[in-house]
Simulated scan of single mutants.
Amino acid sequence: MWDERVPLHVASPFYDLAGFRTRRDDLRDFETAEVGDVTGRTLLHLQCHIGTDTLSWAHRGAARVVGLDFSVPAVEAARALAADLGYGPERAAFVAGDVYDAPGAVPEPSYDIVYTGLGALCWLPDIRRWAETAASLVAPGGFLYLAEFHPLTESLDDETGTRIVRDYFARDAQVWNEPGTYADPDAATVHNRSVEWQHTLGDVVSALAAAGLRVEFLHEHDVSLFPRFANFEVRDGYHRFPAGHPRVPLIYSLKASKS
């Protein structure tokens, strides 16, 4: 499914790679504020897709960025984009591999920053194994930074986001068979089956703590990157509930460090 969608994403206005080549930064303002200065640091991006967020950290001064994704076409697209921007593999490397096998796939044993961006964790069945893997790749004195869509939103009705209609604590795999992609909903696609898992906020935080990381903060944000609910409107570059509508957290972010 992901392999088929890579060329659609590369060509889509959603990712706007032509614009990215001049814009050079696709990170969200809260991410850059919370991660802070990355100048001279090494950064590993798990589940990097086509590499726009990974390369944004390189633009911001990271000494070396490494992106890992299980889709070979996505990795190839990321490498091509890095080359277009003048980054050789010594500065921006992309490798193919399953996130659970990342320690054996990435070129260095540990990194100052391990980063996971929005829309990644729902594809993983075992959050504890993910946390153990990610923690093992954080260098002493370094940290993991995670930004992710808030699991509460999956329990709310799709129209207004005001009614609980699904079980927040559900653990069963959710199987979907839907054509198109978030970057191009009308695209004709053949491989449409996907499987997702819901991980509560407590599950994620507890898994990182059990893996030996110290959670420094957990922040919740009332903005989204896509029209999750039918009544959303766009303000200040984000999708939000209308003014005066009761707010709920739509994204969360956390930082967890290693001694």
Rank of each mutant, 00 (worst) to 15 (best):
P7A: 03
L17K: 02
T54Y: 01
A102M: 04
D222S: 12
L8M: 02
Y252H: 14
A131H: 08
W123K: 10
V66L: 02
N231Y: 03
F149T: 15
R41T: 09
P227A: 11
D184H: 00
A78M: 10
G40T: 04
D101L: 12
P227L: 09
V138Q: 06
P246W: 00
L213K: 06
H150A: 12
L118S: 11
P13M: 11
P249S: 12
Y15V: 01
V165T: 14
E31C: 10
P73L: 03
A96P: 06
A209V: 12
F20S: 00
G141V: 07
T32N: 01
D158V: 07
V204N: 04
Y115F: 15
L118Y: 09
E220P: 11
L137S: 04
L43H: 04
S257I: 00
F169H: 15
L17N: 05
F226W: 15
L17H: 04
L121V: 08
G161I: 01
E233H: 05
G180F: 07
V6F: 01
N192W: 08
Q174N: 03
G161M: 00
N177K: 04
A173C: 02
P227S: 08
L137W: 05
E196H: 14
Y252L: 15
L46V: 13
A77D: 10
H219Q: 13
I251S: 07
V75D: 10
E220R: 13
H49Y: 13
E216W: 02
L85P: 08
F30V: 05
T54H: 03
V114I: 12
Q198S: 14
D25Y: 03
V195L: 00
P185Q: 04
L156F: 08
A147F: 01
C48Q: 07
A207G: 08
E76C: 06
Q174W: 09
G202P: 08
G67Q: 05
F169D: 13
A63C: 04
S71M: 10
E178R: 11
A134G: 05
F229G: 09
G88S: 11
R214Q: 14
W130C: 05
T160Q: 07
R21W: 00
K255A: 14
G67T: 04
G180N: 02
D184L: 02
T160W: 07
V66H: 06
D112F: 03
P13C: 10
Y252S: 06
A188Y: 06
A243C: 06
R5V: 02
P125Y: 06
D84G: 10
L152P: 03
Y145W: 14
W176G: 03
A120H: 04
K258L: 15
L213P: 09
E108N: 03
D25F: 05
L208V: 07
F226D: 13
S56T: 01
E132V: 02
L55D: 05
R163N: 10
E132Y: 00
R91W: 06
V38Q: 08
A256E: 09
F241W: 07
T181H: 15
I113V: 15
V10H: 07
R247T: 14
A82F: 05
Y87W: 15
Q174A: 12
